[in-house]
C-alpha cells in the first residue's frame, strides 16, 4: 500500500487484504485527526461544542465499509468519523472546525454540522433524535424513485428516548423504507447511563415495538460491524424495509470537550481501553500475518502527517468574507 492512501469511497470494491488494511487506516485517520483537533480545541483554535469519537471508530468505519458509494448517510453531532470514513478530506474537516470557507460546510456548520454532498453524507445533526425523520425521508426518496440504495442513519443511545425516534421508527416500518438505524450505544447520553434513561434493558429491544428486525453488533470490532451492517443492507436491498442495529461501543473521552466524565469509574474506562478497536484490530491483523509492525507504523505516521497537514491547511485558509453573511439563507438570489 502506498504512503498516501486515498480513502476508498466504496471499500467493498477493494481486494481482500487491502480492504482490511483500509479499515485499520481509516480508524487511524479518525483517531489522529481527533487527537489533533482535541489539542487545537484546548488551544482555543476551535469554538463551540466538540464531541470526539475516540473509542467508537470501529462503528462508523465498519458500518460504512459495508455501504455502497451511492447510499445515503446521516448522523448526529458526533459526526467527524462518519464524514471522514465517507471520504471527505481531513483538510476540509479540520478547516470546518476552524470555521473557514474551505471547510466541508464552509465554516458555517462547525463540529456538529459536517456535510459532504459529493459523498452522499447528509450531515451531522445536533438536536438529539431530530435527524431520524430526515433519514426516513432520504429512504422514502429512494423508494419513491425506485432505487435500491439504502440510508444509513447513525444515532446515539440518548436518541432512543426521543419522540422523533419513535415517529421515525413507526413511519419507516409502516412504509417499509430502506433505512438502517445504527445506534451507537456508548452507554451514556452525556452523563446519564442508558440504564437510567431507557425503559428497556437492551437498546435493540426498541425495534420490537415496530416489528422491525434488529441485530446487535460488537461496536469495538470493526469486522463484526462491517459484516453485521452488510447483512442488513443486503436484505434491505432485496426487499425494502428498515433495520435496527445496536452497536455496543464506548467513548474514551467525555461527552464533549468540556466534560471531565466524572460519572464513570477509572476502572470502567480502563476495562474498555483494553478493548480499543484500533489496538485490537491491529493485533488480529498481526496474528493473521496481514500486517507487520513496520507497515502499521507507516500507516499511523501517514495518519498523523495528514492530520498535522490538515491543521496547517486550516490555519492558512482565509476567513469567510462578512459580505457572504446573507448568502446562504435562501437559495434564490444566492450565488451558489
Amino acid at each position: 500500500m502506498p504512503a498516501t492512501i486515498p480513502v476508498e469511497k466504496d471499500a467493498t470494491k477493494l481486494p481482500g487484504l487491502e480492504r482490511e488494511l483500509h479499515l485499520l487506516y481509516q480508524m487511524l485517520l479518525i483517531r489522529r485527526f481527533e487527537e489533533r483537533a482535541s489539542q487545537a480545541y484546548q488551544q482555543q483554535k476551535i469554538g463551540g461544542f466538540c464531541h470526539l469519537y475516540i473509542g467508537q471508530e470501529a462503528v462508523a468505519v465498519g458500518a460504512l465499509a459495508a455501504a455502497r458509494e451511492d447510499d445515503y448517510v446521516i448522523t448526529a453531532y458526533r459526526d467527524h468519523a462518519h464524514v471522514i470514513a465517507r471520504g471527505a478530506s481531513l483538510n476540509a474537516c479540520m478547516t470546518e472546525l476552524l470555521g473557514k470557507p474551505t471547510g466541508c460546510s464552509r465554516g458555517l456548520g462547525g463540529s456538529m454540522h459536517f456535510f459532504d454532498r459529493a459523498n452522499h453524507m447528509y450531515g451531522g445533526h445536533a438536536i438529539v433524535g431530530g435527524h431520524l425523520p430526515l433519514a426516513s425521508g432520504l429512504a422514502f426518496a429512494s423508494k419513491y424513485r425506485g432505487e435500491d440504495r439504502c440510508t444509513l442513519c447513525f444515532l446515539g443511545d440518548g436518541a432512543i428516548n426521543q419522540g422523533a425516534f419513535h415517529e421515525a421508527f413507526n413511519l419507516s416500518a409502516l412504509w417499509k423504507l430502506p433505512v438502517a438505524f445504527i445506534c451507537e450505544n456508548n452507554l451514556f447520553g452525556m452523563g446519564t447511563h442508558v440504564a437510567r434513561a431507557a425503559s428497556v434493558k437492551e437498546v435493540a429491544t426498541r425495534a420490537k415495538g415496530y416489528d422491525m428486525p434488529s441485530m446487535i453488533a460488537d461496536g469495538m470490532d470493526v469486522r463484526h460491524m462491517r459484516d453485521t451492517v452488510y447483512t442488513a443492507l443486503q436484505a434491505m436491498r432485496k426487499k425494502p424495509h428498515p433495520f435496527f442495529i445496536e452497536a455496543r461501543t464506548y467513548r474514551y473521552r467525555g461527552h464533549s470537550m468540556s466534560d471531565p466524565a466524572t460519572y464513570r469509574t477509572k476502572e470502567e474506562l480502563e476495562k474498555y481501553k483494553q478493548e480499543d478497536p484500533i489496538a485490537d484490530f491491529k493485533a488480529i491483523l498481526l496474528s493473521e500475518g496481514k500486517l507487520d509492525e513496520t507497515k502499521f507504523q507507516e500507516l499511523d505516521r501517514e495518519a498523523k502527517r495528514l492530520s498535522a497537514e490538515a491543521m496547517r491547511f486550516a490555519e492558512e485558509s482565509s476567513e469567510l468574507p462578512l459580505e457572504d453573511l446573507h448568502k446562504y439563507t435562501f437559495v434564490d438570489g444566492a450565488d451558489r
Binding site: 466541508c104 460546510s105 454540522h113 456535510f115 459532504d116 450531515g123 446562504y328 439563507t329 451558489r336
Partner: peptide, 9 residues
Amino acid sequence: MLTMSGGQF
C-alpha cells in the same frame, strides 16, 4: 439546512 451545510442542501 442551507446555511449549516454551507449552501450544499
